[in-house]
């Protein structure tokens, strides 16, 4: 029996310069260096990225879906945060 399972890491890829890193998936690795090497082999075999981030999954703090209401719903009735809320004449250009 293996003594200890390798920890899980989350992998983020920047697909091209100028774009943000996006979550691609996860993998197991004994340490950060191996996580980067594995991420390269598992997630970028076809030039999918120009930069990789890895972070041990246990360090990610996430919202609880059961609390989605109180966290996200307050934004639902704030139409005044969107450009279409403001009524302007049709002939107005470039705005």
């Amino acid at each position: 029996m293996t003594k200890k399972e390798w920890p899980i890491w989350e992998v983020f890829i920047r697909s091209k310069n100028g774009l943000e890193h996006r979550h691609a998936g996860s993998l197991h690795a004994a340490d950060a260096e191996m996580a980067l090497e594995n991420a390269r082999d598992v997630y970028t075999r076809r030039q999918e990225g120009v930069s990789l981030w890895v972070v041990e999954s246990k360090h990610i703090v996430a919202t609880n879906p059961a609390e989605n209401g109180e966290i996200f719903e307050p934004a639902a009735d704030k139409a005044y945060r969107h450009p279409t809320f403001y009524v302007l004449p049709e002939e107005l250009k470039h705005m």
């Binding site: 293996t2 399972e5 899980i8 998936g25 993998l27 075999r45």
Partner: peptide, 26 residues
């Protein structure tokens, strides 16, 4: 060789997806 390597990758993507349901890789 590239095809077989892809299949290893597919296995890993899927194991990761299964692990999100609370089962360990081991």
């Amino acid at each position: 060789l590239a095809k077989v390597q892809d299949e290893a990758g597919h296995g890993l993507y899927l194991y990761s997806a299964a692990e999100t349901l609370g089962i360990s890789r081991d």
